[in-house]
Design a protein around this nucleic acid. Structure first.
Lengths: 242, 242
DNA sequence: GAGTGGTCTAGACCACTCC
DNA sequence: GAGTGGTCTAGACCACTCC
């Protein structure tokens, strides 16, 4: 009856898995084999306690963890069910530019074209949820990979949240890293577009002809307040996102 | 002494939070206030049991869940510590094109330009981990938002995994949705680039001039085997990723 | 040996659902 | 009222670390 509590005799020195892990494996195995398909009602905790000879708290922990992981759904007073198949969202991670460059085995370098206080213009004010003419910090960086420009970063920062921003030395750090270090609770939203380069971008990226670029608009939020907005422009022929 | 077990007198009808949730809140509150900074060693379970008048299993559950969530780190025989601040990765979700279009309140439509068996060409073979000349399924779709073309989808599918692919009716579903339904364990990798449209893309997207486009290369994996590779081309002036 | 966290038990009381 | 899952306890044994 206690067919659990298995020792692994092939590897006598490996410690046995905890009972709750064995229960989790047992449930997952039944799901994978098709024995317990989607929407199937599992045996009750009480039944599993009897059948497996394991105490209810241990059974409960296993089922709770599988529920937290999305494999099961539990309804008090009703029962435990195999969760409906959920299509996992296709996500990509937007890594920091210096990370990307270093992962190429290349040298990252950042030119600070300006870092100043200015009255915010109406369209930027709308993005920052500020009123036109208010003072805002603005920075304009060009990031280079082994000397070759690969990204323009045009950024607005709300002085309320980061009064020290315009006095920061960005030789060793990037603006994103700096902001993320200060606010660990930061969240981000992004809009990604493609556009051809204009004269300004051609100049700063040292492009000779009009070039297709990836344009990322990144807003950084602290709760429902906007800390910073950045427009990142990457030439499509020099760099890609993975 | 049992300063926990608080009833919320302002909302007398709301049930009190479970004790383990109260312990979690207590720990998080101390972390947020700066009382317990990063790397701080928390009181031991035994101490918390004494101080809070709550049983060890309940204390343990609270600390375990905070550990799983990344707030704490625990070392057996040593203690419990506030985790080092972790910068959360900046992720974006690549939603299905029909989802995006429908979220605009628009009508999605898909033209099937071809859906056929062909001998795979060398460069596509390399992407699919097949050998040149092997038979592969290839489809070429144009997705439209209220009639306007917004995405070209040029896709290779491995016949071994999806023998039924070329007989599928893509009037009601998209290839991605179809593949994801069949294989719930699918994982994906993406490369995103910007490029200007060529004559082929101009034709299928009904573009009159050369246009900057987002190009997404999506590989779909089942374990370490490639099921499908798709090249998605989206005109930058008609659609964006959020 | 003292202190830490990791696991497990047998039992309890409860809210909830279904009949 | 019977059955379900949600929580909580008091106690136990253990592996591990540090001295």
């Amino acid at each position: 009856m206690p067919y659990f509590r298995t020792q692994n005799d092939d590897h006598p020195y490996s410690p046995p898995k905890p009972l709750y892990e064995q229960v989790k494996s047992y449930v997952l195995k039944n799901m994978e084999s098709g024995e317990w398909p989607a929407y199937f009602q599992l045996p009750s905790e009480h039944t599993l306690v009897r059948e497996m000879g394991i105490s209810r708290m241990t059974i409960h922990r296993a089922l709770r963890e599988l529920t937290q992981a999305g494999y099961l759904e539990r309804i008090q007073g009703v029962g435990t069910f195999v969760a409906a198949p959920k299509k996992q969202p296709k996500k990509i991670e937007l890594r920091e530019i210096d990370d990307i460059i270093r992962s190429h085995g290349a040298r990252h370098q950042c030119d600070v074209h300006f870092l100043q206080v200015e009255p915010i213009e109406p369209d930027a004010a709308a993005m920052m949820a500020m009123t036109a003419g208010e003072e805002v910090y603005r920075s304009y960086f060009v990031h280079r990979e082994n000397g070759l420009p690969v990204m323009v970063e045009d950024r607005y920062v709300h002085p309320k949240f980061m009064p020290e921003y315009i006095e920061t030395d960005f030789a060793d750090t990037t603006a994103d890293t700096h902001i993320s270090k200060k606010f660990t609770q930061l969240s981000h939203s992004h809009v990604i577009q493609a556009a051809v380069s204009n004269a300004e971008i051609n100049h700063f990226l040292e492009l000779e002809t009009t070039t297709a670029c990836i344009v990322i608009n990144r807003k950084s939020w602290l709760g429902d307040e906007i800390v910073s907005v950045a427009r990142l422009v990457l030439p499509g022929n020099r760099i890609q996102l993975t």
